Simulated assay, not measured.
Amino acid sequence: MLHINRENLRKSHQLIWFTIDFVMLGLLMINMALIIFDSIYSFAAVENLLAEHAGALRDFYHPIHENFIFYDLIFVSIFLAEFVLRWGYAIKASIYDRWYFYPFIHWYDLVGCIPVGSLRFLRILRVISIIYRLHQYKIIDVTQTRLYRFFNFYYEAFMEELSDRIVLKVLSGVQQEVRRGSPLFERIQNDILHPRRAMLTDWISERVAQAARQGYVPKRGALRSYLEDRVDVALKENLELSRLRLLPVVGPTIQETLEEAVGDIVANVIHQILEDLASASNHAFIEDIVDVFLPTPTAEGEPEEQNEALIQLIIEVIDAIKGQVRVKYWREQL
């Protein structure tokens, strides 16, 4: 159900033209309903059915059907008069650069006025143009109607399915090109990724540091206790270390001291590694990793295993993108 925004209607200062729009919209609806009914009435079976079951309606409408062109010309004359009125206003207000531009821009208004056969149904374009103009000026809001939401939902679903299939086809073709070792792979490696190694290194370094700060630093004590417990269990299960208890007097003391020292060393090593990852000092480590995947291009070419690693990396990245493309958001809305 369309609701008229009266406040925007008053603010527009075009009340006369919008009133004409509503009047023309009503006339167009009546005219289109008559055209559709007359087209249905043209079938002999429909006329005979009305003659049998609704004789009064058939007797009333049959003269209109016989002279339908005359009644249709009444609507056409009104439509043409409105067209000429708007054309004159466009000339007076200098809406277009040339006075004769208006008929070409609003060609659908003229074509729909031709009272011949299927051309009459082109008047639906005039209905659409009026509704669009009223929606554009926020006099009505088409998006709130059930009809619009119904068609828009299936239109979006169709476009999503279509675009997903196209994107998946393109990405699959890119994967095939990369696997074949086409110039595309060389371009991705040498012209796109390699010049941006510093940016990639900075980004990965920052993400690793952020993950380490958020995941390790708040749980440092719990992780240290866990590591010490695990090391203690492992040392107690070690056969060689358990033999230290057999030493007279000092055996148990040596074993406990060794267990505590090993646990403390492991915890400190892990602590230092994670502290380094959580700080800016991880940059050199990340840079070495990036250099492995993106070595500097050389004239002699790169080792095959390095090429294979980068190819696999690109293919997996594209697979991840394809997986995201396959998500059907319209199904979630449904």
Rank of each mutant, 00 (worst) to 15 (best):
R213T: 13
R86D: 03
S242G: 01
L147E: 09
S129T: 04
D97I: 10
L57H: 01
A267K: 01
T143P: 08
E161A: 10
K11Y: 14
A222H: 07
L9T: 02
Y96K: 00
E161M: 04
E237V: 05
S118G: 06
H65V: 02
N152K: 02
I192Q: 02
D38K: 15
M29W: 06
A56K: 13
F37M: 12
S281T: 13
Q333C: 04
A33V: 14
I311A: 10
I131N: 09
Y89P: 01
L294H: 05
E260M: 06
R207F: 13
S172D: 11
K322Y: 03
L125F: 13
I20K: 10
I273D: 04
A157Q: 09
V23Y: 13
R179A: 10
A51W: 12
F185T: 06
D21Y: 14
I318T: 02
G301R: 01
E82F: 13
I20M: 08
S182K: 05
L239I: 09
I114M: 05
R165C: 06
L80H: 03
D141M: 04
A299T: 09
N268P: 00
H3P: 01
I105C: 01
P115M: 09
D59K: 10
F79L: 09
M32Q: 14
H194T: 12
E66H: 05
E275K: 11
Q14S: 12
L25P: 10
E304A: 15
P248H: 03
K322S: 15
E259K: 06
E82L: 10
D319E: 14
S242I: 00
E82A: 14
L274D: 02
L235F: 06
E305A: 06
L241S: 04
H62T: 09
I270L: 10
I91W: 11
T201V: 12
D72C: 01
L57N: 03
R230G: 05
H62I: 02
R58I: 01
S39L: 12
I114E: 04
Q175N: 10
W107H: 08
F68C: 02
W107Y: 14
R245C: 02
R126M: 10
L85N: 15
R146N: 12
K169D: 05
Q324L: 14
L80D: 00
I4F: 11
D202H: 06
L184G: 11
F150N: 07
V290Y: 00
P195M: 07
V325L: 00
I114C: 05
L57F: 14
A81E: 03
E7F: 02
N152C: 02
L50M: 15
E52S: 08
R165G: 13
I270E: 04
I192E: 02
I192D: 01
P195V: 07
P218N: 11
E82I: 11
L73W: 04
N282K: 00
Q210H: 15
Q306R: 13
I128S: 12
